[in-house]
């Protein structure tokens, strides 16, 4: 028997969760038909590319590469089409970083090239985060949705980073899904607590406070963060 090569690609469970959470974050923040259609096409393209990459791994090199590239082209084309199809200018502006961010996340975690890229994961989730903030600025969704979107972006980054890290250490042949699910689940739970906390803050009608009070609150938040970082 030939020696089994360790495949140190990003792990599958966390990778899929990361891309799904990223797409969901953009979807939650920009609830427009163009965003839904664009994300759907993008995800289909990425899935096809992932299948192609899987074929490459199973020694069906040329056909796998073709499938992979077809999927990637579909995913890339989805971005301008969705932006053009968007009816509101704010929607188009927020959609660009959102879709590109999701695409980068998928490319970073695709089981095809090297052992994934933490930098691309960071860049992708950063763009998705920007999309959520832009959507909130342009009033594309209610504040609660922006909060959920931000938490989902964090979940996407966390899962993506975890996938690359775990993949580099253990590879895709090792059984890792239990700890992956536990890790992602814990992050999601903490995010939920964060959203609940923020909602509670809104319930205390912080919104009616004057701006100076806000600044003070922000300073307090910074001080608390610094204290936590020790």
């Amino acid at each position: 028997m030939t020696p089994a090569r360790a495949s140190l690609r990003p792990t599958r469970v966390s990778g899929v969760v990361a891309v799904a959470a990223g797409a969901l974050a953009v979807l939650v923040a920009i609830d427009r038909p163009a965003a839904v259609a664009g994300l759907a096409v993008l995800l289909v393209g990425c899935s096809v590319a992932a299948v192609g990459a899987g074929l490459v791994g199973r020694s069906r090199r040329s056909s796998g590469r073709v499938v992979e590239w077809v999927g990637l082209v579909v995913a890339v084309v989805a971005v301008p089409v969705a932006v053009v199809a968007s009816t509101t200018p704010g929607g188009s502006i927020a959609l660009v970083p959102g879709l590109v961010g999701c695409l980068l996340l998928a490319v970073a975690l695709l089981p095809a090239y090297g052992s994934g890229s933490r930098r691309l994961v960071r860049l992708g989730s950063g763009l998705a985060f920007a999309a959520v903030l832009l959507a909130a600025l342009f009033h594309l969704s209610p504040p609660t949705r922006a909060l959920v979107g931000v938490v989902l972006v964090v979940v996407a980054w966390d899962a993506g980073d975890h996938a690359v890290d775990l993949g580099a250490q253990l590879g895709t042949r090792a059984r890792t899904w239990p700890s992956e699910l536990v890790h992602v689940g814990a992050t999601g739970l903490v995010g939920f607590v964060g959203v609940a906390g923020a909602e509670l803050g809104r319930g205390l009608s912080v919104a009616s406070l004057p701006l100076t009070a806000f600044v003070l609150v922000l300073l307090a938040v910074i001080a608390l963060t610094l204290a936590l970082h020790g």
Binding site: F129, L133, A136, L137, P143, A146, L147, V150, V151, V154, V190, G191, V193, G194, V195, G197, A198, G201, R202, V206, A207, L209, L211, F214, V215, V217, L218, V221, L224, T225, L228, H229
Partner: peptide, 25 residues
């Protein structure tokens, strides 16, 4: 994001800092 909320006078954005703080903790 919280700072952006202050600059844009958008209290809802300030609340985005709360989950960030929870994650830090």
């Amino acid at each position: 994001a919280g700072a952006l909320g202050v600059l844009a006078r958008r209290p809802s954005l300030l609340l985005v800092a709360v989950p960030g703080l929870v994650f830090a903790a």
